[in-house]
Amino acid sequence: MTRLGIPILPHIINALILTAAFSAGNSYVYCASRSLYGLALEGKAPRFFVKCTNKGVPIYCVTFVLLIALLAFLQVSQGTAVVLSWFVSLITASQLVNYCVVCCTYVCFYRALKAQGISRDSLPYKAYLQPYAAYYALGATFIFALIGGYTVFLPGNWDVPSFLFSYTSVAAFPILYLGWKVLHKTKIYPPNKVDLKQDLEEVEEYTRNYIPQPPRNGFSKWFNILFS
């Protein structure tokens, strides 16, 4: 755009990119802090994370999540492109592990439904191509999580930071999972013993009594139409 001699458009693009980045960061800080809060409520994270302000904000969770942003200062001693590639590797591996677990969870859920004679037609939503889509996604995400940083194993390409950012999430998951199982002596239930109706009454009651809030103004109305 600069070579084409368009003076204002590059600034507009920069503003849009910054807005999108801030929006994504705001969203993920919210999701990550509330996930950490939920883990603390279940006893799967340190108890002090349940501390909230008078308005219900889990202050310690938000602070901890925001501290992760300090990793951005790595670019002070390293090239920006290098640090960006580290973050991309870390986030990609984490997302692949996350979706791998989601697919595995669905396969277990599907097996439990089948073992207990519960038809998927009775569910509020039934996805197509299941369970084959879940098997395909599980295999794909598992393979890509393992080979995501394969280049560091090529001759002459070994780099400790790149290896750590590519495989820390992959290695941390089984350690945390097995560590929790051993320490808390939890067990894996067979499909016919899985409780598929836990908290179902509360969810159905909430659904029956839910009253949607009307939009505050015209902007909220159109925003809800577009994004909800």
Rank of each mutant, 00 (worst) to 15 (best):
S166P: 02
Y206S: 10
E201I: 04
L183A: 14
Y189W: 10
L176S: 12
R216F: 12
G218C: 05
L183C: 11
L200P: 00
W180T: 03
N209R: 09
K181S: 12
E201V: 08
S169I: 03
E201S: 09
Y177G: 01
T168N: 05
I175F: 08
I175Q: 01
G179H: 01
Y206N: 07
V170S: 00
R216H: 12
R208H: 06
P191M: 04
Y206C: 08
Y189L: 15
A172V: 08
R208F: 05
E204Y: 02
D195K: 12
N192G: 07
K193E: 14
P191T: 04
E201G: 06
N192R: 11
V194N: 05
A171D: 03
Y167A: 01
Y210Q: 01
P174H: 00
K197N: 15
N192E: 15
L183H: 06
K187I: 11
V194Q: 01
L183E: 11
K197W: 13
W180N: 08
N209P: 02
P191K: 02
F173I: 09
K193D: 09
P190Y: 07
Y167N: 00
S166Y: 02
K187P: 01
Y177P: 00
Y167L: 03
V203R: 06
F173V: 11
I175C: 07
P214I: 03
F219P: 02
N209Y: 02
N217Y: 08
K197A: 10
Y206E: 09
N192Q: 14
Y189M: 13
L178N: 05
F173Q: 12
P214K: 03
N217G: 08
P215A: 05
Y210F: 15
N209C: 10
N192W: 11
Q213Y: 14
E202V: 06
V203K: 08
E204F: 03
S169Q: 10
F219A: 08
Y210S: 02
W180R: 05
P190R: 14
K193H: 12
V194M: 07
I188T: 12
Q198L: 15
I211N: 09
V203M: 11
P191R: 03
F219I: 14
R216G: 10
H184Y: 14
R208K: 13
T186I: 13
K181G: 11
K193S: 13
W180E: 10
S166E: 02
V182I: 15
K197I: 09
G218S: 06
L200I: 13
Q213G: 11
N192H: 13
K193C: 07
Q213K: 15
G179W: 00
A171E: 02
Q213S: 14
P174C: 01
V170E: 00
Y206W: 14
F165Q: 03
S169G: 12
V170Y: 02
S169F: 09
K185V: 09
H184A: 07
P214H: 05
E204R: 05
I175R: 00
A171G: 06
Y189T: 11
Q213T: 15
K197S: 13
V182R: 04
A172H: 05
L196D: 01
K197R: 14
K185F: 08
E205M: 12
K193P: 01
A172L: 15
P212A: 07
K197L: 13
Y167W: 03
P212E: 05
T168A: 14
